[in-house]
Design a protein around this nucleic acid. Structure first.
Length: 310
DNA sequence: ATGACGTCCTGCCTGC
DNA sequence: TGCAGGCAGGACGTCA
């Protein structure tokens, strides 16, 4: 499930591979995944499912200007010129758990995308292609998603920037201007358990289940500890390990223990280095105690009962 | 305000 | 070996 390091890996790939390309066409088989936000000729903003033809028509001919990340969202900035003016759009993609953005070549046979060649793209990933953007250099940008949870939203730049899923995001976990003082203030003001707070994108953007487990283990904090009751030195160390772990995972191109792949279908290598995530029953890397798992909400959290006292 | 649970979806794992 | 049932999980909605 892509979190900040995985999403950033994809964004970096895209900036290397698709900048300046023009979209010449689009194919998709799961309209449900796609939403558009669009002002019609009379100025009405229309939102919702059911406008796929407008999506097709509007995205054709747009040029890829830039690719950015906000939290776990991928933002592809697109432009066209109309009457000598540049009009900007954003294509937002959230990969959720099993979404993958891939660059390759496919052809549609009986409504299904088949790879023209495999290369590093495993067959498995190819089985779940649901959306393809055709680019003007012959390559294609595809979205694969086993569980069809991924979300794609398209619309004019200004309206996209006002989407609650972007506007309500907290500071980005790796943003330079996000300092330890601000971090401590944010966490201190939360009455929930620390694990839930870390997963809340409205508090801090970019962290998911994997890295929050590893961060808490590294900082020796129990996942069920009340956020507001954590001591300043604990929070300080949590901030430091948050940065360290995310940066290291980004360097290793993410974690592929579930099924994350980069845009050429290659796995990341953080999985071997992971600290506690999905290591229930295995020995703690510090003290050898068996890693345990607790559930909160619908999420599970792995921790060492010896190192991480509540 | 908080938390617990349901929803979406489907491959995979467990147990009989 | 086969099949049924449960699980995982990000974000969001609903309900107590």
């Amino acid at each position: 499930m892509p979190e900040l390091p995985e999403v950033q890996t994809v964004v970096n790939d895209l900036n290397k591979k698709v900048l300046g390309r023009r979209i010449t066409g689009v194919w998709f088989d799961t309209p449900k995944m796609i939403k558009i936000i669009f002002a019609d000729k009379r100025g009405f903003t229309r939102k919702g499912n059911g406008f796929q033809r407008i999506f097709e028509k509007e995205i054709k001919g747009l040029k890829i200007k830039n690719v950015k990340r906000r939290g776990k969202n991928i933002l592809i900035y697109l432009t066209k010129s109309y009457k000598l003016k540049a009009i900007s759009y954003i294509l937002l993609i959230h990969q959720k758990m099993t979404g993958h953005l891939l660059i390759g070549k496919w052809r549609i046979v009986k409504g299904k995308a088949l790879p023209l060649f495999k290369g590093a793209l495993s067959e498995k990933v190819n089985d779940y292609i649901h959306l393809i953007f055709y680019l003007d250099n012959g390559w294609q940008l595809a979205l694969s998603d086993l569980r069809k949870f991924a979300k794609v939203v398209f619309g004019p730049k200004e309206e996209m920037e006002n989407l609650p899923e972007l506007k309500n995001l907290g500071p980005d976990a790796l943003k330079k201007s996000f300092k330890v003082e601000k971090f401590i203030k944010l966490i201190k003001s939360e009455k929930r358990k620390i694990k839930q707070v870390l997963l809340d994108q409205g508090v801090i953007a970019g962290i998911g289940n994997i890295y929050s487990d590893d961060m808490l283990w590294q900082a020796k904090i129990h996942p069920l500890s009340k956020a507001s009751q954590l001591k300043a030195n604990q929070l300080k160390s949590l901030y430091v390990v948050m940065r360290q772990i995310l940066k290291m995972a980004l360097k290793l191109r993410g974690i592929s223990i579930s099924d994350f792949r980069d845009t050429s279908g290659k796995a990341g290598s953080y999985g071997d280095r992971r600290l506690v995530y999905r290591r229930e029953g295995e020995p703690c890397r510090r003290c050898g105690t068996k890693i345990e798992r607790v559930k909160l909400g619908g999420r599970s959290s792995c921790f060492c009962p010896m190192c991480q006292k509540n």
